[in-house]
Amino acid sequence: MTEKNESKYVKYLLITISVIFLFFFLVLPLFVVVTEAFKKGVDQYLQAVTDEYTVKAALLTIEATFFAVFINTIFGVFAAWSITKFRFKGKKILTTLIDLPVTVSPIIAGLIYVLTFGRQSILYPLLEKYDIKVVFAVPGIVLATIFVTFPFVSRELIPVLESQGTDEEEAAALMGANGRTIFWKVTFPHIKWAFLYGVVLCATRAMGEFGAVSVLSGHLRGKTNTLPLHVEILFNEFQYMPAFAVSSVLVVMAIILLIIRSVIEYKGKKEEE
């Protein structure tokens, strides 16, 4: 057997393994979700999807996602900008801290907020005084979602900004441009695609967040239930068909975002050429 043949076999072997793996772990479950969802017909499916609590859960999911993306986008740009464009003490620590939400289990994130804003917290009297409810309320869900998704935008931006260096900004500053002009004219065109990509990733992750939200939500149907939590409740009540139907909604939302992501990636690459 020649070396060339060997590499050919390796190629097909690796492709086959990947395809089989993807089939069993991704395609098959997705297929099951969809078939289970439509098991009792389209009418039943539509009924499950348009159920009052499902719609409320969907709206809450969108709300939490929107806030998380909005806040993390601003924070992500600031963090990435400060880390890459300035020299300061504790920069390494800040970079590491940003990554923390990815490494910490979401359930711990949830517990942290329960302890910080819950009844046993020293902040609780203050919150009670002003009638602010965090735990087992919408603000808690939003906070948990923000926490879990907070590195996504900055993580995408930091490598791009780092590879760009500070020369162009310096050149612009030397010519008398102010910070705003420098950002919009020099820096932003460069990070545009990475930025959009980060936003989409952040949204995808925010939408599907379960662990941290689950701890903070209290599972109040129609009030603090997001779509993933709603699926869990339905599932625990042995309402399999509706559970799968709601899941399929989440899947569709995820697929739409994935398509947007691919388009962004494609456009970004094309522009680079």
Binding site: D167, E168, E170, A172, A173, L174, G176, A177, K185, P189
Partner: peptide, 29 residues
């Protein structure tokens, strides 16, 4: 401030604005 010193600076790697045309680069200042 650097921008008020009446200095032109050519950077080592030129630091041209890569998302601007030659025209816009020269016009920037």
């Amino acid at each position: 401030h650097a921008s008020k010193r009446g200095i032109g600076f050519v950077f080592q790697n030129y630091a041209l604005f890569r998302y601007m045309t030659v025209y816009e680069n020269i016009a920037f200042g």
